[in-house]
């Protein structure tokens, strides 16, 4: 009895969520229409420029205060992130060079000792005759076919 009651209590929320999900596209489209309007664009453009200016000023101001407190600002943190990125790029470069060296060494050892099996894969694969027509349209999707032009 009380289970039914709690289910009933939960139902409206679920119903509301389902309604929101179903109608989201229409509401979103309506909002997007408003945003695409020239008047909106004009006021948004002004606001955006002002925001950029304000953001710049506030960042400088807060940065100065944080420096006084001997604390890192967002710009300092981004600096650290950039440095880490540089280290990551350096590692990427090294990894790529090691891979290239390894490949060169493998090729060299194959040339020097031709009896050893070549590690490279064979590049001779052909599409299976029975496979092609079936996969051309794809496996059938669970909820219907595809639209083709």
């Amino acid at each position: 009895m009380s289970d039914d009651r709690s289910e009933r209590l939960l139902e409206p929320m679920r119903m509301w969520r389902e309604w929101y999900q179903k109608s989201e596209k229409q509401w979103s489209e309506m909002l997007t229409d408003i945003m695409a309007d020239e008047k909106f664009g004009k006021s948004f453009g002004h606001l955006f420029q002002e925001w950029l200016h304000a953001q710049h000023m506030i960042s400088e101001l807060i940065g100065q205060q944080l420096a006084t407190l001997n604390m890192p600002s967002r710009a300092d943190m981004l600096d650290v992130r950039d440095r880490l990125g540089e280290v990551d790029d350096g590692l990427g470069q090294l990894t790529a060079e090691i891979a290239q060296l390894r490949r060169m060494l493998t090729t060299k050892s194959v040339v020097e000792a031709p009896a050893q099996p070549r590690p490279a894969v064979k590049r001779t694969r052909k599409p299976a005759k029975s496979e092609a027509p079936q996969s051309e349209t794809g496996q059938s999707a669970p909820d219907g076919g595809d639209v083709k032009h």
Binding site: E131, A132, S135, E136, G138, Q139, A141
Partner: peptide, 14 residues
Amino acid sequence: VYRLWPKLAAWLSK
């Protein structure tokens, strides 16, 4: 898995 991947693989294979 059902749509794009097999379509792409089939097209590329040829």
